[in-house]
Design a protein around this nucleic acid. Sequence first.
DNA 1: TTGTACGCGTTATCAG
DNA 2: CTGATAACGCGTACAA
Lengths: 333, 333
Amino acid sequence: MTIKDIARLAKVSITTVSLILNGKDQNIREETRQRVLKVVNEHNYRPNSVARSMITKKSKILGLIIPDVTNQYFAEIARAAESTAKELDYSIILCNTDEDPDTEAQYVQLLREKQADGLILVSTALSDYKELEQIRREKYPVVILDRRTYDENDSVVCFDNIAAGRMAVEYLIQNGHKHIGCITGPQNNPSSIDRYTGFCQAMEAAGLSYTKEQVIEGDYQVKSGEDGIEKIIGISKITAVFCLNDMMAYGAYKGCHKHNLKIPEDISIISIDDAILSSVIIPALTTIKQPGVEMCTTAVKMLIKEIEDKEDYDKFINFNPILIERESVMKRT
Amino acid sequence: MTIKDIARLAKVSITTVSLILNGKDQNIREETRQRVLKVVNEHNYRPNSVARSMITKKSKILGLIIPDVTNQYFAEIARAAESTAKELDYSIILCNTDEDPDTEAQYVQLLREKQADGLILVSTALSDYKELEQIRREKYPVVILDRRTYDENDSVVCFDNIAAGRMAVEYLIQNGHKHIGCITGPQNNPSSIDRYTGFCQAMEAAGLSYTKEQVIEGDYQVKSGEDGIEKIIGISKITAVFCLNDMMAYGAYKGCHKHNLKIPEDISIISIDDAILSSVIIPALTTIKQPGVEMCTTAVKMLIKEIEDKEDYDKFINFNPILIERESVMKRT
DNA sequence: TTGTACGCGTTATCAG
DNA sequence: CTGATAACGCGTACAA
């Protein structure tokens, strides 16, 4: 079933059908309109959007590049992206990079080939890959989410990860903790680097020292939180652990439980993200909220403005961390 | 940059470029090949897949229709779908229905318009909407995941939800529980109906009675588990609750905690799914594993076989429930 | 070994 | 008010 068939069956020209289907039918006789619509409905005809894209140069598809949907936080982002996109008549192609810069670069290429109208990019390795350069040169619409770049022309919706890291550790310090462990994210991950920087800043500002042993490299997955805390609890003085994201905090809970350590009595846990489940687990996780849903909604809207070349808009929006005090941190005296 | 430009710059015909780019270059002089490739790389040219789809009639896009990525279980499914698809050179368009049949129908239409080569459908309302009929008539490739239909011709990867429900409740009964509450899923959701049927079967087989009050309607979301259990714990005799999915069990944990009820000492919890976090929460959740990742991987492979018209294959694959015994159910004497 | 020309399904332009 | 026709970028039969 093509537009041609419909035209033939309704005994009108292709143009007429197209006009009607696209709502440009002010000048079409009602009778003709009804006849065409009837044929369309009878045959359940839907225009082929690929052919349409061919000519309009718009695919109405957005690429969403994230590390891993399985991570609660990114699941929420994916959800927000999809809802917002749907509202504005776009679809989302989902891409998981697993924090691998090569995979990320591949996906950027793929999405361009597929003529995605734009990209929401939660980048793993922003600094040094040539795709980004090319994108900038060609002015391909991309909004970088969750991470800032230093090029004035980039569209960015970001979160102050350094401040978030600092906020988490300061909160621990205010609660009397002096020996604080840290489970980081993947080594090259920008948000992980920033959050860790926040940790360092807060520790130094408070005149607290820390050894290499109390900083464990994780990978933002549950399991690494579990493994990480098992290493840390060997260090007798540690009273609190800062996990760089919620998923690892969940793992830390498990590790503590396995070793019969009570949270927060024996060990306090704090992290960053505030995924849905963080208010659900017991004890409820004290965490620094990164407003992923709002950020992503903002990003999608920004991207679409860019694509549709709407009125001026801010190309840089920053979200601030918010402390969500729950039950996983205890005051030490 | 189009194939035309490349041809012009390399001083060859369009055909030559196309042949080389598609690996059909056995008959092309190496020198020519190199020259073309050089131009291609220099300009970072990538063929436009929309135009390619136009002619090949293949979009290399698969639609994934699920209730909600934010649900751990579906996040894992989305992940599995995306990985498997990528491996086989397909992309995934993500669609969340929120358990709404109309949204589902809309998405089916949309994906067809977008010329998705096939669909993975975790259906909310399989029985009664005309899209499915049309799909069947037109032999559009669809694999129904997580839910069985009764049409022999449908491709189905399913899970025995009735057996799963029965298994959960039987386990509770074996552990000495006689007064068992239940938090169901959305009313019209097929998997919810089946799981609940399993509950009823097991209760009846054991000669156990239950009142309307001890069966609460939930919606598969965390919050409804929390609300649900708060209603149930009012009924003094209840010693165990069967939540129809893990997300609601997480909510139940929270509800119990709020009311100072210990799991499993005061109340036992069991559910179905076995999402990642179920082994992480404390106490670890005893649940019936629905092997979502394997199911989805299987479904995608089946779908692609169907699309690419490969050799014969099973159109019906059933996965069985597996009891995962952890710590949320206590033996009563 | 390479080039010419057509067609995929649609929209846009312009003529009538 | 409606229709003919050109284009979009690519793949491929066929010709050379």
